[in-house]
Design a protein around this nucleic acid. Structure first.
Lengths: 266, 266
DNA sequence: ACGTTTTTTGACGATTCGTCAAGTTGACGT
DNA sequence: ACGTCAACTTGACGAATCGTCAAAAAACGT
């Protein structure tokens, strides 16, 4: 009957950053717990992640775990946040790609796809965290943190768009159109990745086609924006590969290793 | 420990369509159950939907309910299917809109947005059903039916695209590009709607701006496809309104009534 | 009317969730 | 060094939920 069983987690952690050694230890432990939770999901499937299982897999007691996450859903939300933080790091790297601004935005999309591929489990946590069942039962703090991360991501995209406008690559009617364009970019990327993740079993989209599809979709959208150089004037396939080799060589190597020895893809 | 507790539901329902009066009755009952499940979600929230609650809210016993849905997740999958069927009906209507083909495709997107607005609960079921936790525990039959519906939807989009090509509104390099364009359309619509549903609480996107954003995103994408007439040559804002008044007047009326007396919006 | 097949029932065992009173820890003042 | 106390941890516990199954009921065929 209770809507949100416990508003905040019990662990004292004032408002800003970590203060004492102790709170650092608590924060570290939280990361440990998230890693363990992720491992359980990868090993036994998504629905096998249970609070009881997490408790017995870690070296702490139930109460302690519940001091970190006030419900199973809150745990999912925490995993989503972890995922978004990683994504943010990739985005920051992508935003400094050497090239014109449209290529930089493309690098952002590359990073997103990369993240979906290298950390499928975490990526799916983001999808799961959009679900009302999860949102209803997550703590207010974590939901807040989630929207803050959202805004950070948005800021990166917005900034690239603004630079493109300043550089004359892109023309917009009014300043607030930047937000609309950011949203459109976000939507095409989210939509493509989400649908591809969902359908990867049913095989509508082949694994290797997925990257092509994303590049294709993004190119259409940016052409629609009139973002120069248009795809007919520039080889973005080549840009895509350059992004991979210049920015994310290590991550791509990890993927091909995964394919060779598929451990967790049952 | 069991991966998929029960492969098929126990109710005898061969392969094709309904045969006897009896099986018709069973199918009807299933629809009743879905309606009740939906009501529970609307009244008490998403996470309040419980098998026990569904059982006590309907006039049947637990065993009977479990003969229809072999798990809670399977129930979600069934709700998703119901949602997609409704969507399909709207799409069929949309695909006959009086206008050029780009307007027809726009009508499809309109229908999607409309569905997300008129039946938010069911729409969110689709989102939930994409979640691995749900997919892992749904019955094979239902997952199958889901992909079939997916294909039907795809077929409608594909058909419009092909007609557009035939009419000279759209030029494509090779025939299989039609699939890529269909996927792109689907992705932008899914992405936009999903993000807007998720953020509607946090207020990044205002309720009334949502429609504008979708129209905007779709227009960008179609312009990128080079689908004539381009948005600078045609007033699609006007088309959008025409679609509303000529095709979905009844549904729009229902929405404005909802706004006046918001019953189920918690 | 009677045997067979299909469906329904609801009590039951197994899981999972989330709580809380009692116990432990360690930071801090003296 | 020691006592104190707030903060943290523990794990047994009750409640809620899940999904099953043997027995009862209903439907069906002859």
């Amino acid at each position: 009957m209770v809507w949100c069983s416990r508003e905040t987690s019990r662990l004292l952690c004032p408002i800003g950053k970590i203060k004492s050694k102790r709170q650092q230890a608590i924060a570290d432990r939280e990361q440990d717990l998230l890693v363990i939770a992720e491992q359980i999901m990868e090993r036994e499937g998504f629905s096998a992640l249970t609070m009881d299982k997490l408790v017995s897999a870690c070296s702490y007691s139930k109460g302690t775990v519940y001091n970190h996450f006030n419900s199973k859903e809150d745990l999912f939300c925490a995993l989503c946040i972890k995922s978004m933080k990683q994504l943010l790091h990739l985005f920051r790297r992508a935003s400094h790609f050497e090239g014109h601004h449209r290529e930089r935005m493309l690098a952002i999309h590359f990073a997103y796809r990369l993240h979906a591929m290298t950390r499928p489990t975490l990526f799916l946590c983001v999808l799961t965290a959009q679900t009302p069942a999860v949102r209803e039962k997550s703590s207010a703090e974590r939901l807040q943190q989630q929207t803050e991360l959202d805004q950070e991501v948005t800021k990166i995209c917005t900034s690239i768009l603004e630079q493109a406008v300043a550089a004359g690559e892109l023309t917009i009617a009014t300043p607030e159109y930047v937000d609309a364009l950011t949203f459109a970019s976000w939507a095409i990327s989210f939509g493509s990745n989400a649908l591809m993740s969902g359908d990867c079993d049913s095989g509508v989209i082949e694994r290797l086609d997925a990257e092509k599809a994303l590049l294709f979709n993004v190119s259409l959208l940016m052409d629609g924006m009139g973002w120069l150089p248009l795809s007919r004037e520039w080889d973005y396939q080549n840009s895509w590969q350059r992004i991979g080799s210049e920015l994310f060589a290590a991550e791509l190597l990890a993927i091909s290793d995964m394919d060779k020895a598929p451990i967790s893809q049952f």
